[in-house]
Amino acid sequence: MEIVVCVKQVPDTTEVKIDPVTNTLIRQGVPSIVNPFDKNALEAALQLKEKHGGKVTVITMGPPQAKDALKECLAMGADDAVLLSDRAFGGADTLATSHTLAAGIKKIGNIDIILCGKQAIDGDTAQVGPEIAEHLAIPQVTYVSKIEADGNKLRVEREQEEGYEVIEVSTPVMLTVVKSINDPRTPTVKGTMKANRREIPVWTVNDVSVEVEKIGLKGSPTQVRKIFTPKQRTQGEIIQADTARAAAAQLIQKLSDAKIV
Rank of each mutant, 00 (worst) to 15 (best):
K190I: 12
T204M: 10
R185I: 05
V173H: 11
T176C: 08
V205E: 09
A195H: 00
P187N: 14
V169R: 04
P201V: 02
T188G: 03
T192V: 11
T186Q: 07
V177N: 08
I200D: 04
G191Y: 05
T171H: 01
K190S: 02
W203F: 09
V202C: 08
A195E: 00
M174R: 14
I181H: 11
K194Q: 12
N206G: 10
S180M: 13
E199S: 12
T186F: 10
R185Q: 09
T171F: 01
V205C: 05
A195G: 00
P201Y: 02
V202E: 15
T186W: 13
L175M: 12
I200Y: 11
T171R: 05
K194T: 12
L175C: 08
V178F: 03
S180N: 14
M174A: 06
T204Y: 07
M174N: 12
D183S: 12
G191L: 04
P187I: 11
T204D: 07
N182D: 06
K194C: 00
T186E: 13
T204Q: 14
W203N: 06
S170L: 06
P184F: 12
V169K: 03
E199F: 06
K194R: 12
R198K: 15
N206Q: 14
P172K: 02
T192E: 07
T204S: 15
I200L: 11
G191T: 13
I200N: 02
M174H: 14
T186I: 14
A195S: 02
T204H: 09
L175K: 11
L175Y: 11
V173L: 10
I181V: 10
T171D: 01
S170Y: 08
V202H: 11
M174S: 04
K179D: 09
M193D: 02
I200G: 03
P187Y: 08
L175E: 08
V173G: 05
N182R: 06
T204P: 04
V202G: 04
R185V: 06
R197I: 04
E199H: 06
R197W: 14
I181Q: 10
R197Q: 15
K179M: 08
I200R: 04
I181C: 10
W203M: 12
N196Y: 07
N182I: 06
N196R: 12
P187G: 08
D183Q: 15
V178E: 10
I200H: 09
K179N: 09
D183N: 10
L175P: 12
V169W: 01
E199I: 04
V173K: 07
E199W: 05
N182T: 05
P172T: 00
E199A: 10
V178L: 05
R197K: 15
P187M: 14
T204W: 09
R185M: 05
M193N: 02
D183M: 08
R185Y: 03
T176Y: 09
V178C: 01
M174T: 13
V202L: 03
K194H: 03
V178P: 02
R198F: 06
V205H: 06
V189P: 01
L175A: 10
K190M: 15
P201S: 10
V202I: 15
N196E: 13
D183C: 03
G191E: 09
V169C: 00
T186K: 14
T176W: 11
M193W: 09
I181F: 15
V189S: 04
E199R: 13
R197A: 13
